[in-house]
Computed example of a mutant assay.
Amino acid sequence: MNRVNCLIVDDEPLASNVLEKYITKLDHLRLVGKAENAVEAFNLLNTHNIDLMFLDIKMPQITGIDFLKSLPNPPMVIFTTAYRDFALDGFEMSALDYLLKPISFERFLKAVSKIPNPPVHKQAPTEISTSDRAYIFVREDKRMKKVFLDDILFIESIKDYVKIITKEGSILTYLKMSYLEDQLPNRLFLRVHKSFIINIHSIQTYSASEIEIDGVIIPIGRHYKQAVHRVLNALML
Rank of each mutant, 00 (worst) to 15 (best):
N5D: 13
A208H: 15
L184A: 08
L31A: 05
L100K: 01
A41Q: 04
A82I: 03
N73F: 14
I217C: 10
H223G: 00
A82H: 00
E106N: 09
N49T: 15
F86D: 09
S157T: 14
Y22P: 08
S16N: 07
L45I: 04
I164K: 12
M1W: 06
I211C: 08
F79C: 01
A35M: 02
N46S: 05
Y206H: 13
A208E: 15
K58M: 12
K146A: 07
D56H: 00
Y206W: 13
D182G: 06
Y83V: 03
K114W: 02
F86K: 01
Y179A: 14
I65C: 06
S178G: 13
F105S: 00
S195L: 02
I203C: 04
I155M: 10
F79G: 01
A15V: 11
R191W: 06
L19I: 06
I50T: 07
K194E: 13
K225I: 10
L100F: 06
A111M: 03
I152H: 06
H28S: 13
V39L: 04
E140G: 09
K25S: 11
K110P: 01
S202E: 13
D51F: 10
I128H: 12
F67M: 11
D97A: 01
F79S: 01
Y135H: 15
S202V: 02
S94C: 08
S113N: 12
V120P: 01
M76R: 08
T24D: 13
K21E: 15
V162S: 09
I198D: 07
D151W: 07
E168A: 14
G215W: 09
I57E: 05
S16W: 04
S104H: 02
M76P: 07
K101A: 03
D132A: 14
L100H: 04
S129E: 11
I115V: 12
E40C: 03
I62F: 01
L172P: 05
A234S: 14
F67W: 03
L26Y: 10
F91T: 03
I23V: 09
P116S: 10
I62S: 03
L14P: 10
K69R: 15
D141W: 00
P102K: 10
Y174L: 15
A124Q: 10
F108C: 08
S170F: 13
R191K: 13
Y83I: 03
M53T: 13
T80C: 09
L190S: 06
L237D: 14
N73C: 11
A134N: 13
P60K: 03
K114P: 00
N5E: 14
I50L: 05
L180W: 10
R191D: 04
L100P: 02
